[in-house]
Design a protein around this nucleic acid. Structure first.
Length: 550
RNA sequence: GGCCCGGUGGUCAAGAGGCCUAAGACACCGCCCUUUCACGGCGGUAACACGAGUUCGAAUCUCGUCCGGGUCACCA
């Protein structure tokens, strides 16, 4: 045994497998030419974040459109930051947004597939096998520096204004001998394993990013940590081993990773792996004061995807919005294919924005109105009551008290060829539909400026006499038109516009009076339909109420 | 500070040396349609960060300046 081999045995005595074992265990995937294998590798340190959802979407659609595989892997190598229920929240969250998972974690405790386990804490032995091999080849070594020592070194480097980090002559244990290591271990000292980087800052590494294009950076010369003192690898090392063994073809991740690519490429090379294609996704930004910054879990409510559920955005709306952010040509496609699933869109990573886009809630609302307008009333009933049940139980009780009635309310101007685009999120619904429910109804009889209270009363009086709930839309309005001239209003808007001085207003103003009397507001969907749903009794009583109050 | 990346209307963006007198979408404004509102249709305000250079010609290529973002852990 040479010294490297002795070192390997000293540090990882219990590892008895070799990389070959795993290479055979996880053979190349049999997929058709061009199929892309992608993944999302969240760490369960918090709840599902907008950025994670966005990355998942991009990975998902990249796999889908190439006939490939999209899988999930849990990166739980940092036990200190892990939170309870984190995995479930992330995986279930993706499910709620319709992101299907082909392989890997499909639930908090469920994993599926031939390339597992898909949780890094269950893969310690695999990583250690590869670390052992690196040590054997003299490409990794133990480092016994404490955090304090490392701090001190960095201070010195800062003072001397030289590049900080554990590299070159600053790599204290780079050439540690077997005997020295053994002595320190026998003394009970803890250590990490570092890569013995053969790189030099003088060299440049070039890679072609699927999203950002060609990027050049200095080669990595830092002896970064690959195995932490607890025997668990760092992200960098786990990424190389996992994405190789799981046969990932495209690593599409947040662009905060871009600066570590030289490390990763070096690792792949040293381990004898073929590097995947990288694509670095620009973050979704937010305006804070005057400054643009990455949307943050801690500061921004909309960073946690849960926020959208609370607001009552349909998951489709959020996905649709995210697609417009992901692909600059998506909106044109959508216009041409209004009824297709976004999954049929030919997604091209090259069309992705290179720099971060500001989160635009106006745009989200606009997109969402279109999405919601495509739902029929039965669908809206289900979605709305489901939302209300969780976030506004009182409203839910009101909605479900008489389901047939609520369905009729929801179908107004909806189950028609050109449905209204008026609701973006369910938390707007309570106010929007309030006048249909006596317990929520708030009367407000403020009249338009050109209608006197006397004329309004006169009109309502006359209208009551001819009101018939069975009238169709045409007849309904004809009756209002018929009354108009009797109180000095024009029957036709054109008439009024032609000679405004001859009239007090037009029939439209009178319909507004009726609208105010019946619904307490000036703007509503089609009043005739509303009155029909409201029923004669309620309409008459509200008109009477208005008559008394005006 | 070092290293990366990026700067086109308020926002998202098309744009690959002449097709740019710079698309489209959201927001905003006006008009039309109209029982109100919304939808829809038509129109409008509004942008190539700055300075040099290359070129017959630059939003597009080069350099510099400025500004913004990311990253420099036993975190991912």
């Amino acid at each position: 045994m040479n010294n490297n081999e002795k070192m390997a045995e000293l540090l990882l005595p219990s590892i008895d497998k070799t990389p070959d074992y795993y290479e055979n265990l996880y053979p190349a995937r049999e997929l058709k030419e061009g199929a892309r294998v992608t993944r999302i590798a969240p760490s369960p340190t918090g709840y599902l974040h907008l950025g994670t959802l966005f990355a998942a979407l991009v990975n998902r659609i990249t796999a889908t459109s190439s006939g490939g595989i999209f899988y999930t892997r849990i990166e739980d190598t940092d036990k200190k930051r892990e939170i309870e229920g984190g995995i479930a929240d992330i995986i279930d969250g993706l499910g709620r947004f319709g992101i299907t998972i082909d392989e890997g974690f499909t639930g908090a405790d469920e994993q599926y597939g031939n390339y597992g386990p898909y949780k890094q804490s269950q893969r310690a032995e695999i990583y250690q096998t590869y670390v052992k091999e690196l040590i054997r080849q003299g490409l990794a070594y133990p480092c016994f520096c404490t955090a304090e020592e490392l701090d001190k070194v960095r201070k010195i480097q800062e003072d001397r204004k030289i590049r900080t980090g554990y590299h070159g002559e600053w790599a204290k244990h780079r050439n540690i001998t077997f005997e020295e290591a053994k002595k320190l271990i026998d003394e009970g000292k803890t250590y990490v394993v570092r890569l013995k980087s053969p790189g030099s800052e003088e060299n440049t590494v070039v890679f072609d990013d699927c999203i950002k294009g060609k990027i050049e950076m200095p080669e990595n010369d830092e002896d970064f940590v690959i195995l932490k003192s607890d025997g668990i690898p760092t992200y960098h090392f786990a990424h190389a081993v996992d994405d190789h063994l799981m046969r990932t073809t495209h690593v599409l991740r947040g662009d905060e990773w871009i600066s570590s690519v030289p490390k990763h490429i070096q690792l792949f090379k040293l381990l004898g792996f073929k590097p995947p294609k990288y694509g670095h996704i620009a973050p979704i930004m937010k305006l804070d004061g005057g400054a643009k910054r990455k949307i943050s879990k801690r500061k921004d409510p909309e960073a946690a995807v849960h926020f959208f559920a609370e607001e009552g955005y349909d998951s489709q709306s959020v996905i649709e919005y995210l697609m417009t952010v992901a692909a600059s040509d998506f909106e044109d496609w959508r216009k041409a294919n209004p009824d297709k699933s976004y999954k049929d869109f030919k997604f091209n990573l090259k069309k992705m924005s290179v720099s971060g886009a500001l989160f635009d809630s106006d745009k989200l609302n606009n997109v969402s109105k279109t999405v919601v307008s495509s739902f029929d009333s039965a669908c809206v009933y289900d979605k709305l009551t489901k939302w209300a049940k969780e976030f506004d139980p009182e409203f839910c009780a009101v909605l479900t008290e008489n389901p047939e009635y609520t369905r009729a309310v929801l179908s107004i101007d909806r189950d028609v060829p050109k449905p209204r685009k008026d609701i973006a999120k369910w938390n707007e619904a309570k106010d929007y539909f309030s006048y249909f429910f006596d317990s929520l109804y708030k009367k407000d009889f403020s009249l338009p400026e050109n209608v006197s209270s006397a004329d309004a009363k006169l009109f309502l009086q006359k209208y009551k006499e001819v009101y018939d709930p069975s009238d169709d839309r045409q007849l309904w309005f004809d009756k209002i038109k018929a009354i108009a001239p009797e109180i000095g209003f024009a029957s036709e808007t054109k008439e009024y516009k032609a000679e405004p001085d001859k009239f007090k207003g037009h029939a439209g103003d009178l319909s507004t009076v009726l609208r105010i009397a019946v619904t307490g507001r000036r703007n509503t969907p089609d009043l005739c339909s509303i009155m029909r749903v409201l029923g004669k009794e309620r309409c008459i009583s509200r008109i009477d109420d208005a008559l008394n109050s005006l």
